[in-house]
Design a protein around this nucleic acid. Sequence first.
RNA 1: GCUGGAGUAGCUCAGUUGGUAGAGCAACUGAUUCGUAAUCAGUAGGUCAGGGGUUCAAAUCCCCUCUUUAGCUCCA
Length: 638
Amino acid sequence: MFVITLKDGVQKTFDDKVSVLDVAKSVSEGLARNACAGIQDGKLVDLRTMIDADCALTIVTFDNDEGKLAFRHTTSHIMAQAVKRLYKNAKLAIGPSIESGYYYDFDVETPFTQEELEAIETEMKKIVKEKLDIEKFELPRAEAIKLMEEQGEPYKVILIQDLPEDAVISFYKQGEFIDLCAGPHLLNTKDVKAFKLTSVAGAYWRGNENNKMLQRIYGTSFTKASDLQEYLDRIEEAKKRDHRKLGKELGLFAILDEGPGFPFFLPNGMILKNVLLDYWRKIHKRAGYDEISTPIMLDKDLWIRSGHWEHYSENMYTSMIDEKEFAIKPMNCPGSILAYQLERHSYRDLPKRMAELGLVHRHEKSGALHGLMRVRCFTQDDGHLFLMHEQIKDEVKRIIDLIDSVYNMFGFKYHVELSTRPEDSMGSDEAWNHAIDALRESLEDRKLPFVINEGDGAFYGPKIDFHLEDCLGRTWQCGTIQLDFQLPEKFDLEYIGSDGERHQPVMIHRVVFGSVERFIGILIEHFAGQFPLWLSPVQVIVLPISEKYHDYTETVVKALDGHGVRVSADYRAEKIGYKIREARNQRIPFIVVVGEKEQEDNTVSVRSRENGDEGPVALEAFVERLKGELDVNSLFKE
RNA sequence: GCUGGAGUAGCUCAGUUGGUAGAGCAACUGAUUCGUAAUCAGUAGGUCAGGGGUUCAAAUCCCCUCUUUAGCUCCA
């Protein structure tokens, strides 16, 4: 006799061993029908797993992440089975489920085409219709290798050989298809109701660019066709919002063949950028930062001293000046350090907060470039802080609050990750652990949940990364807070303590936007080009009905312009519908139509982006309304 | 950088099996002076990304380079 404790605390007693599925059935038929897997004492298990002892058990369905994992993993096996049926010589590599679906890597002679993908999908549908039972079995190592050799799957053999000696080697079998797999999986192929193969791309065996490139097919699957459609619609929506498309349409930026990865900011984009920077300067001034600017290009010896040359030179551009080598900065820290060293610092002046909107250049691989999101030249909204050890936690918390206030301003949700020491790094383990602890404690004090990102820190120190989530649920890494004991050491930084002695300060590197360019790209997609009023490059456009009202149009423009509203007018001899259409396509928040009535009554007819035609309103009242919505102090308050 | 896709007028795109380039919008000119998502007519605009090759003939076939794109790798 044993007791199984379910998720809601309910305990069930069984006399004989039971499967997870049976436990689900004992709760309800509905749960059994929807169940995808189980979590037994924190471990993800099959529905077919037999239980014969006390344990905690949660039954998971597609609504849980773990259930999705099992469901999609099974879909990936169905895909692999279909591929094997259509391509006898295809070799299987790996095929896991991922956040939005699943993939499987195949070694095939020629890459799959779109048409072939459709044929594979058709075959998958057949497999689902065949209602194949999915069975699990385990084999000892030698037999497992033998089986995979017989099946002609060299990659699977390698995978087994790399498993620990004591590992249980499990396989799943559906019809004629057998795959090495830890599971869990559904019980039958019939349950995979709605799926789609989304794309095909090359991917290196084991993610190493020195290995052979395999062909990876991506797909997604759902329990309901309507959910699949919703997902596909969301992808379509994301395409419509693509910042590269909107950037062109709205005249924000351009990236030309003459400068791959080097964006041009066009007039509207420049306004947007400057508004963001104005905002940034205001909040940083208030947070106690002093803004500086350091050179784009500095002596190579500086970069050798800072360690950048050793750890980052692959990404650095260089140039010769009078037979001396200079490097174009990929980061702003060495410049800030030189600025810090220009004067003596007392403990009374710490933390010393230096801010810099630094233009950095990094040689990114050509294949990595992507609109404004990944460029070779960008502006970091950098901050370098020099402080005493005992100030670390307080200061980190202040920065967390600053970043939090900025992301809230734009309506972003976010999560944080704590990245630890990478392989290519400098400094002692002790210093690293101390720094990691300080960051962890700050996060805990702020009650911010975080995940650990093992080995993803910068080469000079660990970091907190802020991943913000846009309105389509996509995440972007933007802000980071990096703690650094290495550069102060390398540059012999010091301050005079209360004891009159020299001490070494700690350094914090931090960004809020991350990259101004990337942040703008994210904003474009987040708002689908419909920026909030304060960010809109053009806030109001005035449209005269005809030439007769040009004078009054000018009056309206002047009235608005006089209050700092970014206003333009369309004096072309076009019909009003035409001008409205263009203004709407430009996502201008307020369209103001003026004609005979408005001129006589000193009013404007307002058409807002959100509500459409709002009818006439006194010009003064409209000015007051905009003044209210644009009140800088209300925008920038905590 | 790697693998696949793509590059035709300012933009969005057509262009059959190789036979010598086209539409809509935008621009320009003229007319229209108009009330809430496209007024009409006309004009101009392209070494078909660049270079090389095959051919009587190349936007179309082949090779190289550049750019771009989906991913991989890397990353703010």
